[in-house]
Design a protein around this nucleic acid. Structure first.
Length: 570
RNA sequence: CGGGACGUAGCGCAGCUUGGUAGCGCGCAGCGUUCGGGACGCUGAGGUCGUGGGUUCAAGUCCCACCGUCCCGACCA
């Protein structure tokens, strides 16, 4: 491609609304443009990057035996009703009615359609299968943000494994995991596989691939001395021990006028009520049912954990009115001693604790000498605690770090939910019918593109890894009007192109500063500069974008150097 | 959905308080000079001031409604 003929609308000014670095650079560099909130156009060079990302994914998916499909984006409501997700997906699913009056949905994911296709399978001999596609997904996000990192319409590589038994699923899962490690490595990312919650998709062994970035929306916990890594929605840590008295008296009331917070109670009654000796009583509405949630005073609830253990779809804190009608007191004086007929879910760190302080369910009064197991009718014990930075790792006691990450991939085991719903059964060798066991695996394409940029840029612009950017090499001429320069550049351009190198020739009659600045903004990994000086000595300048350290290369050696730097295999 | 802000030329913005012929920078077109790090001069093109309604002799400016976009929160494989 010649730059003079390419549509690469770079901008000199930052887009006003840009807050994520990748968004700013992709817009300025002429890769993407916004159409509306959450919908982006891919411009030619953005599309080239996307094609490269697709290619890498395809190569690695094919390498583990994957077969590419292309499924419809528009789905009849029936298949979603059949799996039970027509209702479950709520407002996140785009829905529309066609001219016949039939309900339709724009696909947010494709378990249903793939499971329908899998229903044609009849024998264990046809398994295992890995089926994938690279396709548009629609999700009516309540708040698209950060440019292309969180949108309503995006491309996803989604794959599904089909196996006859758990061992087969384990193998398919492991293959995907390995493929993902290779894919993200080729993207130049340092992606960490972390334990995660599987959310409304259902399933187990949910593993997210996270890349550290300030633009990330998830908090990740990793241990500094072992390989433990988890999303905070699921992360665990060791609890700091608190020693309690062996036996305590019956609970007794004491007046706490005006005290409404853990902090205030600890300050006012330092001898008996430090935060770790208090019980924090939270009231939640879980699918419309009021439930008490008990935490240690100095701990915070991780709401996703509560959602996961209770399988709740709709969670919200109870309103003050609901709380008063349930417990007879306002927040600040709530407790669970003597409460019956209401589910009481307590965090594991409260198990066996004695001599604690909690609200008396009467405004301005608290109870002391509470023995949790003796005095509270706990109905469930669960791990609900939010992990904090610096806490000891549950595995080896190492220090836990907390960092923000972007989710670029997610893999998990689905089980038989969709195969059962869509009647995807096969017979085993004994003639017995079994639902196919499925796994589900996703990679966000545009999100990967943005995440690469988040992690690989400098003040001048983007630095694409070889094989990912729109071109690997840019030939920049200085004095494009000089016939000798032109001829040298044309020859090199033809040579590289014939050799299969992705090269763009900046033949524009611009001043050097403009051409350099554009090349660095767009981010080709290597620049070859040809000017009058070099024509004299028959040398070009070879400048890797990452280091910006220029070396002189004879015209005749340029192709060899480029091949070396790109890795000859490509 | 709650809170906040913003919609004026392709991009970034001023003008609104105090109503009276729509401006600046970049970019764009032509000509000339320039040419190893975002040049300069001259000339020029380009705007239903988000949409609709209202007040007024007169609305980019004041009032109302709606739409859109961004940020914070809620929410979110």
């Amino acid at each position: 491609m010649r730059w003079s003929q390419a549509h690469i609308p770079t901008l000199r000014d930052d887009p006003a609304e840009a807050e994520a670095v990748s968004h700013k650079l992709l817009v300025r560099g002429g890769f993407i443009r916004q159409l509306s909130s959450g919908h982006y156009s891919m411009l030619p060079i953005g599309q080239r990057v996307r094609a490269n990302i697709d290619r890498v994914i395809r190569e690695e998916m094919d390498a583990i035996g994957g077969q590419q499909f292309h499924l419809p984006a528009l789905h009849p409501a029936e298949i979603w009703k059949k799996s039970g997700r027509w209702e479950q997906m709520g407002d996140e699913m785009f829905r529309l009615v066609d001219r016949k009056g039939a309900d339709n949905a724009l696909g947010m994911t494709h378990e249903e359609v793939f499971a329908m296709l899998a229903s044609e399978l009849t024998s264990y001999r046809q398994l295992p299968q890995i089926w994938y596609q690279i396709q548009t997904k629609f999700r009516d996000e309540p708040r698209p943000k950060s440019g292309v990192l969180r949108v309503r319409e995006f491309t996803m590589k989604d794959s599904y494994s089909l196996d006859i038994d758990a061992a087969g699923l384990d193998a398919s899962f492991a293959r995907h995991r390995d493929a993902y490690v290779r894919i993200f490595a080729r993207f130049g990312m340092n992606a960490v596989a972390v334990e995660a919650s599987s959310g409304i998709m259902g399933g187990s062994e949910s593993t997210e691939f996270m890349v550290a970035s300030p633009a990330g929306e998830d908090w990740i916990v990793t241990c500094d001395s072992c390989d433990y890594a988890a999303n905070v929605e699921r992360a665990r840590s060791r609890v700091t021990d608190v020693s309690d008295p062996d036996a305590v008296a019956e609970p007794s009331r004491f007046a706490t006028p005006g005290i409404r917070t853990i902090r205030a109670l600890a300050d006012g009654f330092a001898d008996i009520a430090p935060p770790e000796r208090q019980i924090k009583t939270l009231v939640y509405s879980l699918d419309g049912v009021l439930t008490l949630v008990l935490m240690r005073g100095d701990h915070d609830l991780q709401e996703q954990k509560l959602v996961d253990v209770t399988k709740t779809v709709d969670i919200r804190p109870a309103t003050p009115e609901e709380i008063v009608s349930l417990l007879g007191a306002h927040p600040g004086s709530l407790g669970s001693v003597g409460v019956t007929g209401t589910e009481i879910i307590a965090d594991e760190s409260l198990r066996g604790r004695r001599g604690l302080v909690t609200g008396a369910n009467e405004d301005d009064w608290h109870l002391r000498d509470v023995d949790v197991e003796r005095d509270i009718a706990v109905t469930r014990w669960e791990d609900l605690r939010a992990v904090r930075s610096g806490e000891p790792c549950e595995v080896d006691g190492g220090r836990l770090d907390l960092w923000k990450g972007v989710e670029v991939g997610h893999i998990f085991k689905l089980g038989t939910k969709y195969s059962e719903a869509m009647d995807a059964y096969v017979q085993d060798e004994d003639g017995n019918s079994h639902p196919i066991i499925m796994g589900s695996y996703g990679i966000g394409v545009e999100r990967s593109m943005a995440t690469i940029v988040e992690g690989s840029h400098d003040e001048r612009g983007i630095i694409w890894p070889p094989g990912i950017g729109p071109w690997d090499v840019v030939i920049t001429t200085l004095r494009a009007d000089d016939p000798a320069v032109q001829q040298a550049a044309e020859e090199l351009y033809g040579e590289l192109r014939d050799a299969g190198v992705a090269v763009i020739y900046d033949d524009r009659a611009e001043r050097p500063g403009v051409k350099f600045a554009d090349a660095e903004l767009v981010g080709m990994p290597f620049r070859i500069t040809i000017g009058p000086r070099g024509v004299e000595s028959q040398t070009a300048e070879f400048t890797p974008r990452a280091t910006m350290e220029t070396e002189e290369v004879a015209f005749g050696d340029c192709l060899t150097v480029v091949r070396d730097r790109l890795g000859i295999s490509r």
